[in-house]
Design a protein around this nucleic acid. Structure first.
Lengths: 215, 215
DNA sequence: GCGTCCATTAAACATCCGTTTGAAACAAGC
DNA sequence: GCTTGTTTCAAACGGATGTTTAATGGACGC
């Protein structure tokens, strides 16, 4: 039945996100799903295709999509919105639904499912961020530099998911709690990033930036 | 003999760093090392103790230590030096010695050996960075905020190691090459970070920062 | 009732894993 | 030469893995 398929994807997603592809066994999946070991072969062919389906399901049901912002939003407001949304995804809970964790795991150690995920889902997000970064910089800044700066913005957000354990060890549980509230971290990262971008803008802008100049 | 021990550690380190603990088999290690499968049991007891020895060996031969800077260095110069050193570690080669990669892997998915590694090596480095960040900010900025800002600096450096494959996919091989030269990335991250910190400093500084002011 | 198709099942399959065995090779001391 | 201790070796162990088989159950059309 189709219910078995869904149950398998759901269960496998949880376990894959918790333990990774290699360390999750088909018997473990089937036991938790209450199905027979052969059901995976029957519905998906093999373990790897089940994994791919789980990843697909993950970012279909948790689609962090480029968000449409208010009409007259200024570039800084747009950046703030993007960062806030990212931090919401990164911190939405310690162990929320498994969807985010599975995607993050896939992005950190890419397998076969990775490229599709990037093309389908990360590319648009990054393009949107790059667009906003561009609005905050003079046109003289080359594309590759703008991409690097966009990386700097993304990096700050990713840290709080990928290096949670280290962060805890470094600053202590108490401080780490304070650092990982969505509102506070989004505010801090936004301010830091706007400052960084402005710094680049004013350096470059001395030559070619200000609106209404020579051409 | 002792040469076998060393050969095993060296080989195992390379493979562990490339594929992780689970995905590396003892047979693979021994084949590459040109030894018998039983040699691991004989010299180390089991696979896990060989792994621990490899991690130890890794950060004994690649000790990222706080660097002593020139005497009269300004805080921005100190920050630049720290970031440059970090990027040197992150980018020193695509596949250099396996030491860094193994440590990074350990930090991303901590095992029991992780806390010791943090306490012994990461803590001093982070403390040094926090110290420099503090010098760049007014004293009114609370500790937890300074820690968060230090995270923002570190995060930018870590991105280029942990998300290399995604970065490649996003901006293309050509641009990614340009973004991952040590000098260029260190310059970009330093400028961005100094701007971000300055932004925080001037906001806070309106009350208490500038040297030689009211209070 | 009967045949057909889909879904599920228990059992077995072949392979790989980390580990262990027992003997062989080797060097050093006496 | 013989013993002793250390190191290496081929082979096998017990168990876990992903996968496959062949049989069973049930729903539906006729």
């Amino acid at each position: 039945m189709d219910a078995t398929r869904q149950k398998l994807i759901e269960t496998a997603g949880q376990l894959f996100s918790r333990d990774g592809f290699e360390s999750t066994t088909v018997r473990e999946i089937c036991q938790h799903a209450g199905t027979n070991v052969a059901s995976i072969h029957y519905h998906f062919g093999d373990k790897e295709r089940l994994y791919i389906e789980a990843v697909k399901h993950a970012h279909c049901h948790q689609p962090p999509s480029p968000q449409p912002w208010a009409e007259g939003a200024t570039p800084p407001q747009k950046l703030a919105a993007i960062i806030h949304q990212m931090m919401t995804v990164m911190l939405d809970a310690e162990t929320p639904s498994w969807h985010t964790e599975l995607m993050m795991r896939e992005l950190a150690r890419p397998t076969s499912a990775c490229e599709a995920l990037v093309r389908e889902f990360i590319d648009p997000l990054f393009a949107q961020l790059l667009c906003v970064v561009t609005e905050l910089l003079p046109p003289s800044v080359p594309l590759v530099e703008r991409q690097g700066l966009a990386f700097s913005v993304v990096a700050q957000c990713l840290l709080y998911r990928y290096h949670r354990p280290i962060g805890r060890l470094l600053v202590g549980e108490n401080h780490f709690q304070q650092l990982t509230t969505i509102e506070e971290s989004a505010r801090r990262i936004t301010e830091f990033s706007l400052g960084g971008l402005q710094s680049v803008a004013t350096r470059e802008g001395a030559v070619a930036s200000k609106p209404g100049e020579s051409s």
